[in-house]
Design a protein around this nucleic acid. Structure first.
Length: 411
RNA sequence: GGCUGGGUAGCUCAGCUGGUUAGAGCACGGCACUCAUAAUGCCGGGGUCGCGGGUUCGAGUCCCGCCCCAGCUACCA
């Protein structure tokens, strides 16, 4: 939803009027008087002023300035927002972000002016001629104008279950936004999840060595699925992280080429060699128990948006499968003619691969799909969670997939 | 400056309400195996747990002080 569209402006107007009708005193005329930094072109709060100077422009004098505009009584909602977070009705994740917000709230919010008289662009503030709506007040409203306000009659798609935002705008989403909704008598979103940033090449590295890498180059190197895997497995979704080619290559070679890719290759190769590509019937093995555990942990992690934790479970299961192969040594079973045990081992490995395909699909949809198809499955692994819990492949014809994660040929 | 995190093996990090010889992955060294993308498995070396005090029978884990790193800091988008 572009904030320049007419329906957006209408939605903004509607929300402001809704607030006015429910809480007449939530919006009031006031005079803002504060220290204005010419360098930043904005007013500074006390916390941003050190030794009487703006912390970002300590060389400039702050100018006392007055401006008349409309205020939102944010301070009045501090307690209720705090309560909503503490009670779990409105969740803020991860914990580090929640702690930040809680301290801010405990310190108390101050009213914010929500109209501007300086800017010629923007949505006109209802009831005024020379004022426009404060851009953040307006931008947050976009969530509503894009959902429940824009097209009357549609099924209500608000409240959202989760807002995924960058950590830099956590405050707007966790303090101002819920207060606005409360003032308007609208339900709050279930959760705000603030993710970290990734530095491409790292500022230090790129400046001194000139080794910064572009997004395109990174994708070109090992493919988009591998890049997603790297970011979620190594960096996670919560923390900041530095992208480096060394780490990317290490993850690709270790987790994907030597890990999942090689496991798929060796398993399907054995199925073809010993059982003509048909998955035999086999009772549950120790590997199935490992699989149950990994899937359970994976589900728990994914439910809490712990994508890094989910990825770790995939790696864990790959590792357990490799250990299982060496422990059972199917090639020895084949040589000795121990057909029953060979059936059991191959069947368990095939089931394990099927689970991995499903588990990997959120991270690497294309690669997971390739593995899925190689296992003789129709459709997509994304909708096959049931098979992650209880994999069944007996009698299915499988084929060795194309090299899932080829290693770059080193010159 | 205030607030929130972090400082544990060469690297990336786990270590819950304090309890026996501080863990994992990667990297490194040795051994084993051959189904596989010179792949995999097993074993091993390696740490004064930022510094200094304190509480305790006992602290990486709690308390105080200090040092260093990162992030946030609202009328910026």
């Amino acid at each position: 939803m572009r904030t320049t569209s007419p329906s957006h402006a209408a939605g903004v107007t509607k929300l402001i009027k809704l607030i006015q009708s429910r809480h007449a005193d939530a919006l009031y005329q006031g005079e803002y008087e504060g220290m204005y930094c010419v360098g930043c072109e904005e007013f500074k709060s006390e916390s941003q002023i050190v030794n009487g100077r703006c912390i970002e422009h300590p060389s400039r004098e702050l100018v006392p300035t007055k401006e008349r505009n409309t205020f939102f009584r944010l301070s009045a909602w501090t307690g209720q927002v705090l309560e909503a977070i503490n009670s779990g009705a409105f969740r803020v994740e991860p914990e580090i972000r929640r702690n930040e917000i809680l301290r801010v709230l405990e310190a108390g919010l101050i009213d914010i002016s929500v109209s501007r008289s300086r800017l010629p662009i923007g949505v006109a503030f209802p009831g005024t001629t020379d004022q426009t709506v404060y851009v953040w007040f307006e931008a947050l409203m976009n969530y509503l104008t894009a959902t429940m306000f824009s097209t009357p009659g549609d099924a209500p798609t608000w409240p959202a279950d989760i807002h995924v935002v960058g950590k830099g705008i956590t405050r707007f989403h966790c303090c101002i936004w819920p207060a606005i909704l409360m003032a308007a008598g609208l339900p709050l979103p279930g959760m705000v999840w603030a993710h970290g940033y990734v530095q491409w090449g790292g500022a230090k590295v790129s400046k001194s060595e000139g080794t910064s890498i572009s997004l395109d180059e990174a994708i070109e190197r090992h493919g988009p699925d591998a890049l997603r895997w790297f970011l979620l497995r190594e960096v996670g979704f919560e923390n900041d992280g530095d992208f480096s080619l060394e780490r990317f290559d290490a993850r690709y070679d270790g987790d994907l080429a030597n890990g999942l890719g090689n496991l798929a290759a060796r398993t399907t190769a054995m199925l073809e060699k010993y059982r003509a590509g048909i998955v035999p019937v086999g009772a549950a093995e120790s590997l199935d128990i490992s699989g149950d555990q990994c899937v359970a942990e994976y589900a728990k992690a994914m439910a809490t948006i712990d994508l890094k934790g989910g990825a770790e479970e995939i790696s864990q299961l790959v590792s357990e499968a490799n250990s299982y192969i060496v422990a059972t040594a199917p090639w020895t079973l084949a040589k000795n003619g121990d057909e029953a045990k060979l059936d059991a081992a191959l069947a368990a490995l095939a089931r394990c691969l099927l689970r991995l395909s499903v588990m990997a699909s959120p991270f690497m949809p294309a690669k997971a799909q390739a593995l899925w198809s190689a296992l003789g499955q129709a459709g997509t692994p994304e909708t096959a969670w049931r098979l992650a819990l209880q994999p069944e492949l007996a009698g299915v014809r499988v084929a060795k997939p194309d090299n899932l994660f080829p290693k770059p040929t080193t010159p």
